[in-house]
């Protein structure tokens, strides 16, 4: 198998994830895009592990570590999403503008 096949598939998945993060308005769907990007990175790591025949298996081990970090990220991210839903009543990322830089403090104290 040519090495660039898995690498190109990984690039494709990463680009699809980027598109999902940019275009989706629901925060949970944005997190799905992030998961796609992390999976693309894993595919790259595993492909290069197989290519280099790494005796330390650095690629596969790092892929495992990335999976663990993705699990931690999705747990925290969904906790934040649920908190936003509790305070705002919706999770549309386009309407969350409390942290935007403004001339005068337009948002009232909560």
């Amino acid at each position: 198998m040519p090495l660039w096949w898995p690498l190109l598939l990984s690039s494709l998945l990463f680009a699809i994830g980027v598109y999902g993060v940019l275009v989706r308005r629901n925060a949970v769907l944005v997190l799905m895009g992030v998961e796609l990007m992390l999976n693309a990175v894993n595919l790259n790591l595993v492909a290069f592990d197989a290519y280099f025949r790494d005796v330390l298996h650095g690629g596969q081990t790092f892929a495992l570590f990335v999976i663990v970090i993705a699990a931690a990220e999705i747990g925290l991210g969904l906790a934040i999403v649920l908190l936003v839903f509790r305070t705002h009543g919706q999770i549309d990322v386009d309407t969350m503008r409390e942290l935007a830089d403004r001339e005068e403090p337009a948002v009232a104290e909560r």
Binding site: P2, W5, L8, F14, A15, L22, V23, A47, A50
Partner: peptide
Amino acid sequence: PAVAVAGLVLAVLGTTVVAGFHGVEL
């Protein structure tokens, strides 16, 4: 704009890996 950015990412990454590892056998 999202399509443009994603397409740009795919073009840059894709050309990089194909040009860099063309002919390398796994």
